[in-house]
Design a protein around this nucleic acid. Sequence first.
DNA 1: CAGAAAGCGTGAAACGATTCACGATCAACC
DNA 2: GGTTGATCGTGAATCGTTTCACGCTTTCTG
Lengths: 335, 335
Amino acid sequence: MRSKQAATMSDVAREAGVALGTVSKVINGQPVGEAYRLRVEAAVKKLDYQVNPSAKALKSNRSGFIALIIPDTTTPFFALLTQYVNLALEKRGYKMMLCFTGRDADREQEFIRMVRRNQADGIIALTYTPDLEIPAGIPFVTIDRFFSVDVPCIASDNFGGGRLAAQKLAELGCTRLACLRIGSSLVNEPSKRKDGFVSGCMELGLPFEVCNLPDGSPMSAFEVFLKRNILESDQPLDGLFCGNDLLAWQVTGLLRRLGLRVPEDVQVIGFDGIRMFGDQDYICSTIVQPVADIAETAVNMVLSNDFTGLPPLICLPVRYQPGGTTRDSAPHTEG
Amino acid sequence: MRSKQAATMSDVAREAGVALGTVSKVINGQPVGEAYRLRVEAAVKKLDYQVNPSAKALKSNRSGFIALIIPDTTTPFFALLTQYVNLALEKRGYKMMLCFTGRDADREQEFIRMVRRNQADGIIALTYTPDLEIPAGIPFVTIDRFFSVDVPCIASDNFGGGRLAAQKLAELGCTRLACLRIGSSLVNEPSKRKDGFVSGCMELGLPFEVCNLPDGSPMSAFEVFLKRNILESDQPLDGLFCGNDLLAWQVTGLLRRLGLRVPEDVQVIGFDGIRMFGDQDYICSTIVQPVADIAETAVNMVLSNDFTGLPPLICLPVRYQPGGTTRDSAPHTEG
DNA sequence: CAGAAAGCGTGAAACGATTCACGATCAACC
DNA sequence: GGTTGATCGTGAATCGTTTCACGCTTTCTG
């Protein structure tokens, strides 16, 4: 029950004494004589005219919405990505439609179907379904998941990041390394973190272990690994690279509970660049993903409906960030 | 460039040999003769017909979107809320349009203006602007922020939660309590957590302190307070209630760094019910907000366009949850 | 069995924008 | 000064629904 009925284009046209088409041109910035433009602008202001997005969408066949398909919003990295994608879309005048899937393949497919009904002009997806049916004819880009050369994928330099982690640990004096992974960092692009780490270790001539656990495994599984390879070993590990920051954070807690000092006895590097309050301290030493760049790039790609000539996988540079779990960190000031 | 042009209602009507209006009735579940219904349904299936949401929105003046206005998506409580609101909306056949404001009043007002352009059928807002201009004529409900009796507000029982925290700390053997707050828990509804806590302490006849810090204050400010009132006091505090879980978590880290044992020397209770990975361990002992209920209620309210007769403030029950920072917790197994 | 009431299919009108063929205006040029 | 072409305003047609007045059937009632 709006107090005043919203003004339409014809109201503006009548008020300004011009034709409908002229109003449309002014609104859309097409060339119009100065005098006309001023009259229309005055009428727009006077009537507080706002374009009706439904009418515009109906006629132009563009909704102005981009769907972001994401496993959940509570994982810090996803939350950060959501925020930056939203920001990047806003800058370009688009709105975001959030679809969180809870890692449910059926929900993912259902969202994509929905989007095909014209609800969105494009899709940015970070999904866990490897055999997802990608809709033809709608801009579709993925983040961190490579499907095929037809589907552009934006990712940070996972391989380079893993390699960098190995190098940093070596630089910091570690001589026996391990890579710990769980769940999502096992699949697809993020899996290259391990590959890069392994490659780095081999280049450095350092011995290393790899320990993989399926999603949802209890920490006790890692506990077994760490006890055997640190407490009970005469050649204990002294440098750990974890598949993501949350894991690194958990592993650090675990190590400390086992009586080991971090970073004095064991140094730990994670991956992602998660901070505690979104903008405060890093929760561990980490390989920081360029989240803002990833979001910007994904948005630019999905809005430029021409993917030809682009590399199917766009890799963005990562950087190393000390964060309290390596010896190069300033004495820590936070929890 | 969809391979086949999407089918419209008239295509379906032609295919089924019925009138346009009949198709509309079938689609919208209005009473239609059995034979007609079957023919239309067959045609819908054959042509893979999907309603065009823009056309529907244009004619019916409802977009099917509800806007969620939220300060950010990275604060765990907000992330959780976002997820549950999304879920509740989905259940009701609505889509969510996410507007994160970064706590910027101008952005908040701009979003509301946008929504008035018919982009959304209602607004659920969690805002920091006390003098927000609430749009008339569009369903608007708030979470945790009371504006006026005309604007329904959903909140958890902040007062009761604060009181419960005091009672629990007393039960667990604490005799000298304090309430620590920062930033967002100082304002509006969440501020009642302190009131409830104070009330609880007075009922129990226990001495208490209150320490408030403005948003963005460094932890060192709390450090001063804690040093003076625990380390340097001959009547040291032994029970802390923090305005939210993140603060409780930081304070716990701070206490441990000061050489105090939690929960042996000092017990800490937070507020919110944040878990580390969204579904794993609570990060501290806490008063859990019923996030799912809050979301459901907010969605139900915003979709029922009749607020008359409802209490302006809807209060949902909280519960206490041990989480490692009080003596009633099972020996902790996580970081 | 006539007449009223109820049930239901029909299709034109409307929602509010975009688009485009058309025509008017005007400057330029030979 | 007449012709050409460019520029630009006009308004009808259109996008794909919803809605509703209309009228045909069928059923009920006395």
